[in-house]
């Protein structure tokens, strides 16, 4: 290194030190007297807001937990009273078709309602699913944006129609048609299933649309690049990838069908008779509850037996929820 270079280097270093010193001086200027010790040792306004916000949300959560807990507790206490206070046999409750709680503890068998509830639920989901998947596929894969949003608003409209309207329509349109074709009264599982089919269709459809939209676009591209047609891509990639979420959609639909009371009650016939075919009157758990709750006195066996039905509904909805979670977990793997 020549002498001149060394000189230059020194200059550069000195300049650097100078610029550092400026910073140094500035730091010194802040000084101790400028720092408000009071502020440092006491929580600020923002910190207080933090406590408040957190406290409020804990309070809300606590209230909701309390609410859910007391609902489960109340239904549980009354529902289980049938078995513990009135000494109804649990097995008999689940397996007997003799439902006449006013006649004593030996006549509390809910099998008819259980079977009918499951039948209308399964059948309506079974019929609705292919339609829902087809509509969802059309909306996500084939329809233009305009058509898709038009269909979307129709589906939202279907969700928004009160169940009593569906029941009324079923009573006026579906029941007479069934009566004309199959004879009998027209009330029964078939009518219930058809009404529920329309009611769960939008639920399953909109959730299936979400499921299909959640399939990453690059899967479709990769499939197309391998020479797949649009339909092959749908059948072999999109539906396969979306299956867990579509199943979740179906289960949500089933949960809705299982819990639907009013519309079903209007078309099912409400006779506690074992459904040996689809066109004789029967009764679901929910329809039995809505029709009978006014005819019983709190604390009697007849009333407790209805609470047991309610408990069964609660347990079933819990079961549906667990099923959804299990499928979700399996899909995530």
């Amino acid at each position: 290194m020549s002498k001149k270079d060394t000189e230059n280097l020194k200059d550069v270093v000195n300049q650097a030190i100078d610029s550092q010193q400026v910073v140094h001086v500035k730091l010194k200027d802040i000084g101790q007297k400028d720092v408000d010790i009071d502020k440092l040792t006491r929580p600020s306004k923002e910190t207080h807001q933090e406590y408040w916000g957190r406290g409020l949300s804990y309070l809300a959560i606590g209230l909701i937990i309390l609410l859910v807990g007391s609902i489960i507790g109340f239904v549980g206490i009354h529902g289980l009273a049938t078995f513990f206070r009135d000494h109804v046999n649990l097995w008999q409750f689940l397996s007997s078709t003799d439902w006449d709680p006013t006649s004593g503890p030996n006549h509390v068998g809910a099998l008819v309602m259980i079977v009918t509830s499951f039948l209308v639920t399964l059948l309506s989901a079974l019929v609705a699913t292919p339609f829902a998947v087809a509509v969802a596929l059309f909306m996500t894969e084939y329809a233009s944006k305009k058509a898709a949003s038009f269909l979307q608003s129709i589906i939202e409209l279907l969700v928004g129609i009160p169940s009593v309207v569906y029941g009324f329509l079923g009573l006026t349109l579906v029941v007479p048609v069934i009566r004309a074709i199959f004879g009998g009264t027209g009330f029964g599982i078939l009518a219930g299933m058809l009404v529920l089919f329309v009611m769960v269709l939008p639920t399953i459809t909109s959730l299936t649309v979400d499921a299909l939209n959640a399939v990453p676009k690059h899967f479709r591209q990769a499939s197309a690049a391998l020479g797949a047609t649009h339909w092959q891509t749908i059948a072999r990639v999109v539906l396969k990838v979306a299956t867990p979420r579509i199943l979740t959609a179906v289960i949500f639909g089933m949960a809705r069908a299982f819990g639907e009371a009013l519309a079903v009650q209007m078309v099912i016939g409400n006779a506690v008779l074992m459904p040996y075919n689809l066109v004789t009157p029967s009764s679901t758990l929910t329809s039995q509850l809505t029709t009978q709750i006014g005819n019983t006195v709190m604390g009697t066996l007849a009333n407790n037996a209805l609470w047991s039905l309610a408990l069964l509904l609660l347990v079933m909805s819990l079961f549906f929820n667990i099923l959804v979670r299990m499928i979700g977990k399996k899909g995530a793997k």
Partner: peptide, 16 residues
């Protein structure tokens, strides 16, 4: 037929 002759690999690995 074209895409069977002219394949493609993307930026993001896209295994199904």
């Amino acid at each position: 037929a074209l895409r069977k002759e002219v394949g493609m690999v993307f930026q993001q690995p896209t295994p199904f």
